[in-house]
Every structure is written in C-alpha cells, then in structure tokens.
Design a protein around this nucleic acid. Structure first.
Length: 258
DNA sequence: ATGACTGAGCATCTCAGA
C-alpha cells in the first residue's frame, strides 16, 4: 500500500502538478493540505479521469484538506475529534481504506494570531494526541500523515531558516510532537534515514531551494504494526524543482502486505 | 545599500504561510 501526503499550497494552482504526480507515482491514497478552496471549486474531474476519487474538506482562502484515492475509502472524520463544533478551520480528514485507518492533517502554523494563535496550535496537538491514543488503544492500524508544522529536532531545519523562537520549534511544540511518538508511533521518514538532513519544505524567499535551506515539517507517523510493515519512506524532492512548485514536496510511504 | 516569494480575495493592499 502506497500512502502519500502533499501540502500543495492551492490545489487550483497545482492541479496539473498533482495530476502528473499521480500518474508517475501511483499512490493508493494521497492526502492534500492547503487546498485553499471550498469543495465545489476542487478540480475533482481531472483526478477522476486518472482513477482517483476525491473526498474534500474545503475552506475558502485558507487551509483545506482532501484525500485522493484509487481504492475504496470510508470517511471516518472530517474534523479533528474534540474541537468545538463551531471551529471552521478545515485541517483534518480521516479514512478507513485498505484495512488501515489513515488521518491527513494540516496542523496550525502557530506564528500568526499572537499568543492565541500559538495556544490554538498547542490545543490542536493535545487533541490529536488524545485521538491517536484512543485509536491505538483499540488496536487500530493507524497512519497519521501531513503537514505537522513541527521541526522535531535541530536536524530538521537548516541553520538560519527559522528564528530561534519560531512556533515550529519551540520546546512546547516539540514536547507535544514527542508525546505523539511516545504513544508508540514511528516517524517513517526518520526510521528510513535516522541521521542527516531530510527536508520537505523550502521557502519561496531568499533562494532557499537553490541553497538547500529547508525544513522537515511534513511527517508520517505509523502505529506499531504498520511500522513493522514499513518498506520505504521518502520526500519526493523532484517536485520542488519544477515550474511554479508548491513550497512543500510530497512524502511517500510504502507499507508491505500483511 | 538594496531588494528580497506566493496565493486568495467584496483586492491595487492585507493576511497568512513557515
């Protein structure tokens, strides 16, 4: 089973990038973040032509997540369980597919909106950990993948790419990411490459891509039994070199058969 | 010293991204 995640920074700007990538990589599930549109504006037809159906949790202008699948899926959640029902931010979608549960997430950045904005990020991470804990308690084969907006360690960003007090690397942020890992989840990218640089994002500014000044903020966490089936996990850096790319590249995780 | 990126939207500027 091939799982993937990609923050596309507007699906309408990246429609052809995504279509070509689906043809090239052929994932079973592709989770998308920052689609930046409501469901009716999602270009579902061009993906349907390639054999992928879309489940969309849309939002105008900001955020927005979706999943494209070439296998049957049942949507289990369209928002993170535990958030207030009036929370309008489209950041979570979860499906059952191919015998596993897979959540696609777009975690709040936390640098905007002052102290409230950062508190929202931490609250979101607390709820994510609580949700993961209950799924794992029920022996669910679980994958949580997406744009976490967290650099877990100092190996996960280039020197100078972030200010020292950035919300992506504050101790409170990292502690909450570790709490997720300590539930028994395996960071698939790091399991495949324990040391050295792994980047999934390069800023559009300051020639960050040309200088390879990047961040590792897109992650795939796997429950214990899925981790045992892990075959490969990698960011697809090729996509960052294209014309008018997203600032993030896709991550691809291969899970072997049971 | 200067300029310095991208996307969306009740837009020619502001907000957000990270």
């Amino acid at each position: 089973m091939r799982l993937a995640s990609w923050n596309v920074n507007s699906i309408r700007q990246r429609e052809t990038h995504v279509a070509r990538w689906l043809e090239r990589v052929q994932p079973d599930l592709l989770f998308l973040q920052e689609i930046k549109c409501e469901a009716p504006a999602f270009p579902a037809l061009s993906f349907a032509a390639l054999g992928y159906r879309a489940e969309v949790v849309g939002q105008k202008s900001y955020n927005g997540v979706a999943v494209l699948s070439r296998i049957p899926v049942e949507v289990t959640h369209r928002s993170l369980p535990g958030l207030p029902t009036d929370d309008a931010q489209a950041r979570y979608i979860e499906v059952r597919a191919g015998g596993i549960t897979a959540g696609g997430l777009y975690l709040p950045n936390g640098n905007s909106g002052g102290p409230e904005g950062y508190a929202y990020k931490l609250r979101w991470m607390d709820l994510l950990a609580g949700h993961a804990r209950s799924l794992l308690a029920a022996e669910t084969d679980l994958a949580l993948l997406g744009d976490y907006n967290v650099c877990p360690t100092d190996a996960d960003f280039s020197p100078g790419a972030l200010s020292p007090d950035d919300a992506l690397l504050r101790p409170e942020t990292r502690a909450r990411y570790r709490r997720l890992v300590w539930l028994g989840m395996t960071d698939a990218l790091r399991a495949m490459q324990p040391t050295g640089k792994i980047f999934t994002f390069w800023d559009y500014q300051s020639a960050a891509w040309q200088r390879d000044s990047g961040l590792c903020i897109d992650h795939a966490l796997l429950s214990p039994r899925l981790a045992e089936r892990l075959v490969s996990a990698r960011p697809d850096r090729e996509e960052r070199g294209r014309e008018q790319p997203s600032d993030h590249v896709p991550i691809v995780v291969e899970i072997g058969d049971k």
